[in-house]
Design a protein around this nucleic acid. Structure first.
Lengths: 233, 233
DNA sequence: TATAAAAAGTACGAGATCGTACTTTTTAAG
DNA sequence: CTTAAAAAGTACGATCTCGTACTTTTTATA
């Protein structure tokens, strides 16, 4: 447990976090009980079915949140980057994780053990309100995702996934290129399709000049054209 | 506005509602501000894109909660029966409904205007806690649904839908039969497929003795066999 | 009860998607 | 830098799903 000057109040990723509007008391409470943890690429932060041990605030790296059918398939619900909170939702009734969190790159987190987090939450209506907001965002996201999974073509879904990923890596027209940590399989898991389809669609998008890429390096993304392909209802 | 003895405290559907564990103060506050509203089959309780005017507690009837791509397709997120609360989730940031609620049968609700509901909520941590719980349940439901939509076959999804519907209509082995208010198209909207596929799969299930039905009258449902077909991961 | 309209059932061809099998490229390790 | 292993790309047949077009049944209404 680190109790030092390097706390939440001065944290440089706080502005993109649920903690952003929280009171000083809430932040210093979290600072007191947090400790830093690192994960390598591919490592699980937490696993579906396991007991909830605490919550993670991502300081560095990218994490995929997913559910697997063991030995069959995986669906990625969201991809979280620095500032975001993960693993905070298992702590209902049974304290068991309903999904997993896996590092897509080397990841650094602030970890707050669940007993402390619950205690802090009890005395922090600001944090509770933020969490509520977070749930509502996740719900809306999942509803949108369900629509896509149900009715969009592979092509539309892959376009959507590229847009999502470009957001996570903060792509904008002025940036030359960016390296993603997601494999083709990750794209497939994000869209409910197969890696073969992803490869084919990416190539098609490249041929049509919607994207330019080589391996995991992407650039010259025509965001508007992709949006139009993704046909976001 | 009805302020009478017929309030929430003595309401016969309360036990199946988010209000069940709420304090007397919370209940009587709601009783004070609620009024009764009726909807005919097919009528919208509220519509995606419209301003949130209040929340509905279902007293009688069945309501489908859905999102549509106008002129294209519809996805039903859930089917709510008596005791359940609907329309309570638009009141974030913009106060706009993100989905619609449509009566599947003649429906009777207690309606609480949003200003009052928000006020009551502010002073009722018990109700707030229940709502939070409700969001978490919805999230888990949507995540499960996404998995199904992404990776299950039409047959598996229809089996799942029958199980869902049998739950809504409280089917159990001892019941002879039950009439559903959902059309084949509703089943399709529930499973992200088409009414033609639903007809075909229902027939197949009937042939294999998993269900017996005629039109909208269902009985002799082999729940275990259906569960095994639905292959709930 | 007759009649129209809506819903459900049926069959089937077109097209999309999957997944195997293979080749090529990239990445990681020695 | 070399080599092995993993990831990505490619092609294609098998399968699944969709959606049209039609018939039959059910429901609603006069």
């Amino acid at each position: 447990m680190t109790v030092n000057g390097n706390g939440c109040l001065t944290c440089k990723v706080r502005k993109s976090s649920v903690l952003e509007p929280c009171a000083i008391g809430t932040l210093s409470a979290i600072s007191t009980f947090k400790n830093s943890r690192k994960f390598e690429k591919g490592e699980f932060l937490f696993k579906e079915g396991e007991e909830v041990k605490g919550v993670f605030f991502i300081k560095k790296g990218v994490v995929k949140v997913l559910k697997e059918v063991p030995g069959y398939r995986t669906l990625i619900f969201k991809v979280c980057a620095k500032g975001e909170i993960v693993g905070h939702r298992g702590y209902d009734s049974k304290n068991i994780h309903k999904y997993s969190g896996v590092a897509l790159s080397e990841t650094e987190c602030c970890f707050v053990p669940i007993v402390f987090f619950k205690e802090i939450l009890r005395d922090s209506p600001d944090l509770e309100k933020q969490l509520m907001e977070e749930y509502l965002i996740d719900l809306e996201r999942m509803e949108q995702k369900s629509m896509s999974l149900a009715y969009k073509s592979v092509k539309e879904k892959v376009a959507e996934a590229i847009l999502l990923v470009s957001g996570v890596y903060d792509y904008h027209v002025k940036r030359r290129s960016f390296n993603i940590d997601l494999s083709r399989q990750d794209f497939a898991d994000l869209t409910g399709t197969t890696k073969e389809q992803v490869s084919a669609v990416l190539k098609e998008f490249s041929r049509d000049s919607l994207i330019r890429y080589s391996g995991k390096k992407f650039n010259f993304i025509d965001l508007d054209a992709l949006k139009s392909v993704a046909a976001t209802y």
